[in-house]
Design a protein around this nucleic acid. Structure first.
Ligand SMILES: [Mn+2]
Ligand SMILES: [Mn+2]
Ligand SMILES: [Zn+2]
Ligand SMILES: [Zn+2]
Lengths: 165, 165
DNA sequence: AGAGTAGTTGATGATTATTCTCAATAAGTG
DNA sequence: CACTTATTGAGAATAATCATCAACTACTCT
């Protein structure tokens, strides 16, 4: 993975999302700071190819391999911070640990179909769902951060396997 | 909570769901067994009032209070088993632990709007979502178990609180 | 630019939800 | 009723995540 330092950053779908500057602005507005670690982590997610999702440990390893050593403490803190800011989405794609991806707005917004046996995940899009979710949040006065349809299912391979539940 | 022993069981919305007999049939078909513990746990969920969700610990306490002592080991095993069977849905309503509820079919199927700050949860219905989810799973040949829209947001109260993320 | 304030990091230890192990028990079968 | 084997319960083990705190540094204000 190539980390572009400084300047504006685009994601892999050619839709401009966050720049270091816009992240800094949003952080500072709340009295927080833009650190090199936070900027680096954002860039990793922005450069992540489509359909990829990272766990905390995954991110830790990616950064280590890139020569950017960031502590697991900071990784966990940053993932949670960015999820709460609405920059990242927190996904339950497998048992035991969370995965994260960039929270992309329409029209790149998507959902997940997950095999509960082998965790094979397929992404799919649906504009109506985003609309319905947005409306439901609005109706209750909630400020929406993320809206994700999760389908738990058994993939064709695992159906054939006839494994014990 | 009142646990009805034996006979057919109805949920709080007057829609017949699982009976002890139908659970037994489904279990035996796979070589599993219907135990008093499994039957009791199913009944707890069937008698749960609308909008309630139980964690493993919650369920453990409910059963203890009811004089039905079931070990935490069995609770965890049974929750996972029933979720994999599609009888229960596994929900991420709060940080740190899962919640469970009966996986009710249409027209009782519903979704969750969750405050990421205080975990206040609102349920809402949407038939189109269930249709979209079912179609997405079918298209990929996945055998659907559950289909849930999760909206992460900040509730009106927490918006006013201006708390640190 | 320099100083001060307070948010952030990284190392480490703590927590805790969930799983594993295994001997004792009991459900299903015929 | 006897047999096979899934299931239970107690306790230990695991692992993801969080808390703590001293050292560091981003930001703000002269
Ligand atoms: Mn995705
Ligand atoms: Mn619910
Ligand atoms: Zn699978
Ligand atoms: Zn709230």
């Amino acid at each position: 993975m190539i980390l572009k330092k400084g300047g504006s950053v685009e994601n892999n779908m050619n839709a401009p999302v966050y720049t270091a500057a816009s992240l800094k602005a949003e952080l500072n507005e709340k009295g927080w700071r833009l650190t090199p670690q936070r900027e680096t982590i954002l860039q990793v997610f922005q450069n992540l190819s489509e359909g990829k999702h990272l766990s905390a440990e995954d991110l830790y390893e990616v950064l280590k391999a890139d020569g950017e050593g960031i502590s697991l403490s900071t990784i966990y803190r940053t993932l949670k911070l960015m999820a709460r800011m609405g920059i990242l989405r927190e996904l339950e794609l497998a048992e035991g640990h969370k995965h994260y991806e960039l929270n992309q707005p329409y029209p790149h917004h998507h959902h997940h179909l997950i095999c509960v046996r082998c965790s094979k995940t397929i992404e799919f899009k649906s504009d109506p769902i985003l609309k319905i979710g947005t409306k439901a949040a609005q109706k209750e006065g909630y400020h929406i951060l993320d809206c994700q349809l999760t389908i738990h299912a058994v993939c064709p391979t695992c159906q054939r396997a006839l494994l014990p539940v």
